[in-house]
């Protein structure tokens, strides 16, 4: 009976429903990815969340051609990255950037004040060093730093061969180490 009813539904309506269902799924499984990518650039949770939402709005608008999961995630990473860069350029004037995303995990009880101070200083130097990297190295190093991402996943997200990802990751880490010595 349901099948009979379904067959009478307009194809567009059925398409819309499955489209929305799939989008809900992407929202559930990829919102952390968008958020983390934005966070890596913006280093501010509120801004990152806002940018990630904006990326999802755009994703929804273009969802008809982004239904493949890998394609969706690659598109989402690129769009989020670009939006975050736009945002950071706008925010450069506003120096209220909270650089202490890392501080949360530094607040563990066994850390001394000295530890925290040293860690904060290292964090600031790391941020500056990261800004010195070219964009193509920076995006690789940040995506690879996301929990659960191996070089293959980074390659999928950026549409790059794994060998290229490995090579960029190596160069990025070597440069960061040289800058932070």
């Amino acid at each position: 009976m349901d099948a009979l009813v379904d067959s009478y539904l307009e194809p567009a309506v059925i398409l819309d429903q499955s489209l929305e269902r799939e989008f809900e799924q992407r929202l559930a499984d990829s919102s952390a990815l968008a958020f983390r990518v934005a966070l890596g650039v913006l280093r501010n949770r509120d801004d990152a969340e806002d940018v990630a939402q904006e990326a999802f709005l755009r994703a929804f608008r273009n969802f008809s051609r982004l239904r493949d999961r890998d394609r969706f995630r690659a598109w989402l990473v690129r769009t989020t990255w670009r939006l975050a860069l736009d945002r950071i350029r706008a925010a450069r004037r506003r120096e209220a950037r909270e650089t202490s995303v890392m501080m949360e995990e530094l607040n563990s009880p066994e850390r001394t004040v000295e530890d925290v101070r040293a860690a904060r200083e290292f964090e600031q130097r790391l941020v500056r060093a990261l800004d010195e990297l070219s964009e193509k190295l920076r995006v690789v190093v940040l995506l690879a730093a996301i929990e659960g991402h191996d070089t293959r996943e980074v390659g999928r997200l950026l549409g790059l061969p794994e060998g290229t990802v490995k090579s960029r990751l190596f160069h990025a880490r070597k440069k960061l180490a040289a800058m932070l010595r």
Binding site: R36, E49, M102, E105, L126, L130, A145, R173
Partner: peptide, 15 residues
């Protein structure tokens, strides 16, 4: 340290 720093930069979940 660099790896840890980078990882913490992109850690966390949206609200």
């Amino acid at each position: 340290s660099i790896d840890r720093g980078l990882a913490s930069m992109v850690a966390g979940k949206p609200a």
